[in-house]
Design a binder for these strands. Structure first.
Lengths: 265, 265
DNA sequence: GGTGGTAATTCATCAGATGACTCAATAGGG
DNA sequence: CCCTATTGAGTCATCTGATGAATTACCACC
């Protein structure tokens, strides 16, 4: 059984000659389709195709790369899965905005696929990223362009739910909706860090996997109130422009979540 | 211009019902192929297909999802681009190991595509990750299972090159080879952190983009020696089990690199 | 028993044709 | 004159069928 290192040969060997991995030996002989993937990617890297640009029609592209339409479509589909291009029936195929948020999309699937195996490792990285994001958001909370309205909105909505929680039966509490607001808060804080790459990575790592598992354990009484309190402490530190408190608050909050997940396993 | 949020609809809507994004409205009506991608992914998530398992032959899979072989192949190609499956002509299609290192592969292409726009943001995240990795590596340098031999090897080889550099003309110095050793050192330190997810993300962010730009600026005299000295300081701190020194050393080193990149633009 | 070749299996690629969808130009009515 | 509905060209989505290339396993042969 080979190491299966040649699954994305075209992508990996793009920037400069043979990369450190899959250098020369190894089986992975590039297929026709792989060449097309690399070719289109290069068109974008070299600037021949800019974000929003429309690609030539399938027939022309197939002729340009000397492949059949079927093979060309496989290549385009691969790039679409990576978030690089987008095909619209009846219209054409376009280069996406290439925003980090789009391009890290595949990472979300990766998290789903092996969360079981490396769950704790993923969470460690997530914590690292979110703590940094909280600190950055606090540092620039008074700077022009800082926008914490999304975080505030999510938190206020969640506060309303938490207040109602005391009055309704636990079974009636909409845990899923509360969890969505939870994720929205974390996402907003990531955006508020001012680093879109950081925000995109957080987005990819934060949601998804945690969602199912948290939904199970979220039925424990008092969790909503506790989460809400921790979130509010973090937001206060951020709006006050206190990076140290924001970092500690976020770290404590995420460690508590990790403890929760560990117990419920 | 639409938000282009529907490029990976099948992937995003996997784990639980409709996610926060692309919930209901929006154009992105899933294509036949998207359904197949989601279907195969679900087979893996649900455990019906484990890493290393072989998928049914194309004809059977196509029949199972009620699509033509062409559409099925597009779906498989998309999953192959994501590093989830791997097709071998004459043999079959297999689920990959699903190691983090494989699944973050697409991120490398993402970095290449928009490094121009978000270069500094990417570097900031890289620095954050590598500083943490250095700290972790130092913390567990004396723990069982810790293996710094790769880092040591890369550094010794680089030291030999740096020593020779004083004797050969600058034009004869193999900057590309030295840079590869540089990247190998950083990669080894990522692995030594003990967190494979962290190591994979570093791998995806570290190389690639920096490579071209660094190659240009690497011709400046003394850079090799300076890089070597900084690396040695970091490794010493790691082997001494001094996380604080390791973190600071790595942060200083990467900030120096960033300064270098900024100047050469 | 070991070795070589051959056949079956499987993915890779091609070719042609039809349907679905989008957009824009155009003709008609108000 | 403006607005709307129809129509047409252009483009992607999908299907069908067939051929080539690579791998594997089996079997005859030495």
């Amino acid at each position: 059984m080979t190491k299966a290192a040649g699954s994305v040969p075209a992508v990996s060997s793009l920037p400069s000659g043979p990369g450190p991995r899959e250098a020369a030996g190894e089986g992975g002989r590039a297929s026709r389709t792989d060449h097309v993937v690399a070719g289109i990617a290069r068109l974008i890297i070299d600037g021949d195709l800019a974000p929003g640009d429309r690609l030539p029609v399938e027939k022309d592209l197939a002729a340009r790369f000397d492949v059949s339409r079927g093979s060309l479509r496989e290549a385009v589909r691969a790039l679409a899965a990576l978030g690089v291009v987008e095909s619209r029936q009846g219209d054409g195929t376009y280069v996406t905005s290439l925003d980090p948020a789009l391009l890290v999309g595949p990472l979300g699937l990766a998290v789903d696929l092996q969360a079981a195996g490396h769950g704790s490792h993923i969470h460690s990285v997530r914590r690292l990223l979110e703590v940094e994001a909280a600190g950055l958001a606090a540092s620039r909370s008074r700077a022009p362009g800082a926008d914490l309205s999304d975080a505030v909105a999510a938190l206020e909505e969640a506060a309303a739910m938490a207040a109602d929680a005391a009055m309704v039966a636990d079974a009636d509490f909409d845990h899923a909706a509360f969890l969505d607001l939870d994720l929205a808060f974390h996402r907003a804080l990531g955006v508020a860090s001012g680093n879109p790459v950081l925000a995109a990575l957080i987005e990819a790592l934060a949601g998804r996997t945690a969602r199912h598992r948290l939904l199970r354990s979220a039925t424990v009484a008092g969790v909503a109130q506790r989460t809400q309190a921790e979130h509010e402490a973090i937001l206060t530190a951020v709006t006050d422009g206190d990076p140290e408190r924001a970092r500690v608050g976020m770290a404590a909050h995420l460690l508590a979540v990790e403890d929760f997940l560990r117990e419920s396993e």
